[in-house]
Design a protein around this nucleic acid. Structure first.
Lengths: 194, 194, 194, 194
DNA sequence: CATGAATGAGAGTTCATTCAT
DNA sequence: GATGAATGAACTCTCATTCAT
């Protein structure tokens, strides 16, 4: 679908928006980094927003498979850790788009919409998962699924952004530590009383 | 400390960076919105970064009092809700700076540093709080304070950013709902077994 | 004639035009260096050109006395050295105006006119001097006075500008060396055959 | 080496710096005079200083040939006149750079260095010439070569600047007059006693 | 009489984009 | 299908100058 040239341009673009943000990423620098002429960008993607849209399309295609082959065992701790790992891996490998979605203001509608898909997808998945657990009496029926689901999402989300935006060591944790401690800890309480 | 003119300029600036981000906020539009001549901005703040620094200074001054008069009752649910409310109120009323801290890349060092202060402050406060609770046996000694503290922070953080960046209704919660459900729910588990 | 404030401003102005030239000397920096408010300059001198004119006026007043008390002995070498020393001392102590006269283009008519006065004055003086020498048969009657006079002027002029504009050591001579060698050497030939 | 566009821009630039000096020559006016868009200047020369550097480079290339094919006959008058003519022709055809070198203060180091090359070159050449004359006993061995050489340079230099900067008729001489009178007169004395 | 605050014009420069080839 | 050259709009910032006090 993408020609070699287009691929090179998008890769350069993504790398630069991670470093500098969308506004500060100039077409000139994209061209330099991609090793093409600046006007080639416009030939291929019409304008800068077109390039963003192409990058978002790529993101969306891969986002479809975000939870593919993810099996739920019914062991809450294990499942939430796996799910969180999936999420973290996905956003890490799509840093450019995810961060751009946060940093940029609302002009690029496609970007906005795309970035929201991920949490929405996870939310649905988690709701279904918790409902099943509840129907099987594996977690207390008194639990507010909506609350728990959003908390899992926010935890993951907070972790991702902290990791990406803060350099202070007191706020920095690596992924495995996060999963093994923060997520496990959180998950453990869901089944606490059983 | 700030003259009337300086105040007007900073207010205009903050409003515009919320809407458009720092890069896209032009000195011309700031001047228009503030009702001053464009060069007045430079007379007063040297350059655009100087204006940002002035806004950050204002933020830092107010950040000092962020948890002033906040009393901890020892009732975990109540305390975490109060603390979270404080946090959410603070970041909401300093949206411009907090969001800019996230959106902008690392060129404006003062901004970066400033924005990190808030979570660091809350982290310290929460650690002290949990340690005291533990020493008084009000929460289980087996709890990993570090984990719990970061989870509280990430929950709040995730909520704030979701609220500010996502328009999708399925991800939108108002503050009171968040506090009464998500935070209370989270807090309740800390004392579950007692 | 000049108030203290005016004096300070003119001194600052002259120092800065030596360093940076007229265009690059900003009223802001003049004010800083003079220790006055920027608008005080405009109160006192109307505009920047008015300030230049005031500096030129000062120059012209002092230029009147440029060869005051200068006695000619009739000894050509001695006299040309003395005259050259006068010239060099004068232009050295009025560097700001003399250099500005060279560097600036012709917008400031007063400056142009003023700076030309010095060589014109010396030219007249030298012509009278050589004519007298010739009438007294102290130098050959075949000598072209016009030529000799202009050569003396250009020698002095060339020396002054080289000294002020070139840093290369191979082109740098101190004043006494110049007078004792170049001027004496030149003068000696005028009387050579006698 | 230079494209047509670059050539046009440099020509316009040189013309304008002669008229107005470097600082007052705006990129806008250069563009107008060159018949190109203002930003074309920046595309081609990076910035205003880059344009100056390009003009200086051009100057330096031509400066290499400054005394090419100049043959010395051994006839001092003739040789110094030829040499002076060469010098005057070169600086006349490179007025823009030579004058800029004098007018501008020392920020543009390349310009400074370049402008000094010309007198340094002539100085070396003249020293070698006089030494040869001396070794052949065509001029007195008592002559101070250093003095004579610098005097020739200063004479030429003084003439050039007077011509370019002074409008007063009493100081204005055309080139041939200068060469035939002032230089010949000067040269004649070097061989006077022979 | 000097100041502090404000201004308008214009400077150099950058940017996304277009057009001829 | 990609390039090189050129563009126009916009940007940050500087400057001499003015005005109210």
């Amino acid at each position: 679908m993408l020609t070699k040239t287009q691929f090179k341009i998008i890769e350069a673009f993504k790398r630069l928006i991670i470093e500098n943000g969308y506004s500060k990423t100039t077409t000139k620098r994209i061209a330099e980094l991609a090793g093409v002429n600046e006007s080639t960008i416009f030939k291929n993607f019409k304008d800068k927003e077109g390039l963003m849209n192409a990058a978002v399309d790529q993101f969306l295609i891969e986002a479809v498979d975000i939870t593919k082959d993810l099996e739920m065992s019914g062991d809450v701790e294990k499942d939430l850790i796996n799910l969180s790992r999936r999420y973290q891996e996905f956003v890490a490998s799509h840093q450019a788009i995810v961060l751009a979605g946060f940093r940029e203001t609302f002009e690029i509608s496609k970007l906005n919409e795309a970035v929201q898909r991920v949490p929405i997808h996870f939310k649905k998945l988690l709701i279904a998962y918790f409902e099943e657990l509840q129907s099987e009496n594996r977690i207390s029926s008194s639990i507010s699924i909506e609350s728990e689901v959003m908390n899992v999402i926010w935890l993951n989300f907070g972790y991702f952004l902290t990791k990406n935006r803060f350099q202070d060591s007191s706020l920095d944790y690596n992924l495995d530590y996060f999963l093994e401690n923060n997520i496990r800890n959180y998950a453990s309480k869901l089944t606490f009383r059983e």
